[in-house]
Amino acid sequence: MTSLLPVARAIDRINELIGKSVSWLILVAVLVSAANAIIRKTLNTSSNAWLELQWYLFGAAFLLAAAYTLKSNEHIRIDIVYGALSRRVQHWIDLIGHVLFLMPFTCLMLWLLIPYVARSYRIQEVSTNAGGLIIWPAKALLLAGFVLLFFQGISEIIKKIAIMRGAMEDPTPFHTAHEAAELEAAALLREMAGEDVPDTLTGNAPPSGDKKTDGSPK
């Protein structure tokens, strides 16, 4: 674990940087969509290229941020049973899921996507729509997304083993949807009251009475 944890941290940092950066593509997609709609309504002209650009931007944000979503433990899950189990059992479920499902699936997708993208690039594939964009960059985004997801899966496996062995703290403690809503509401109330808002994802938010104002406990 001593030698593997730095690898996991490096993967986390890279995927966090990429995930936060590509989130801005959503704003760009909204602006492109708005500009395209205004031009179409006012000048009665448009192009399929603008529509496909919106798809490219949204696809890039979704695919390239998938690994960061996994790192942040924000992927969708049904926690009817999961949330009722002990945190150690949850770690085992996550570890088994990563090893038996996530990693084989990402490996399969990489095996299929490499020749798929290579062929598209080789023939310089272009959209069949009039005025459309080239297609191979969009297909390359699929490959890039699964490459990032593959490495994040490795990071998650390393961290799960380290957590269960006591080599590191749990960076993303689990909360049910109800608990998460309560934490967000508490953080909002504290913010409205002008208090410092702790990281609600840790679940370690101190009560308002424990807040220090002069460097000493109340």
Rank of each mutant, 00 (worst) to 15 (best):
M1G: 01
P6Q: 06
R9W: 02
I11D: 06
D12R: 04
E16F: 01
E16Y: 00
G19T: 04
V22E: 10
I26V: 13
I26A: 12
L27Y: 11
V28R: 04
A29S: 15
V32M: 04
A35N: 14
A35I: 07
N36R: 12
N36Q: 10
A37Q: 09
R40Y: 12
N44I: 02
T45A: 14
T45V: 04
S47R: 10
W50P: 11
L51M: 10
E52K: 15
L53H: 10
L53V: 04
Q54F: 02
L57N: 03
L57Q: 05
L57C: 05
A61C: 07
F62A: 12
L63I: 13
L64T: 11
A65G: 01
Y68M: 04
T69W: 09
S72I: 07
H75F: 15
I76P: 02
D79Y: 01
V81A: 05
Y82C: 03
Y82I: 04
G83H: 12
L85K: 15
S86G: 13
R88H: 15
Q90M: 11
W92L: 08
W92T: 05
W92R: 14
D94F: 12
L95E: 07
L95R: 11
G97T: 07
V99I: 15
V99L: 15
V99Q: 09
L100C: 07
F101C: 08
F101E: 00
L102E: 05
M103T: 08
C107L: 14
C107W: 04
L113M: 15
P115D: 05
P115I: 15
A118Y: 07
R122Y: 07
I123K: 00
E125K: 02
T128N: 08
N129P: 00
A130T: 12
G132Q: 02
G132Y: 03
L133R: 10
I134E: 12
I134Q: 11
P137C: 13
P137D: 11
A138I: 15
A138D: 00
A140F: 15
A140W: 13
A140V: 07
L143Q: 10
L143K: 13
F146S: 05
L148N: 13
L149F: 12
L149M: 14
Q152K: 14
Q152N: 09
G153V: 00
I154A: 07
I158F: 00
I163S: 03
M164Y: 15
M164G: 08
D170L: 00
P171C: 03
P173V: 01
F174R: 09
H178W: 06
A180M: 04
E182Y: 02
E182W: 00
L183H: 06
L183G: 02
L183T: 02
E184G: 09
A185N: 10
A185F: 06
L188W: 01
L188V: 01
L188N: 09
M192R: 14
M192P: 06
A193Y: 10
G194Q: 04
D196H: 14
D199K: 00
D199R: 01
D199I: 01
T200C: 01
T200G: 01
T200D: 01
N204I: 02
G209W: 08
D210L: 03
K211Q: 07
K212E: 11
T213M: 06
G215N: 03
G215P: 01
S216G: 00
S216W: 15
S216D: 03
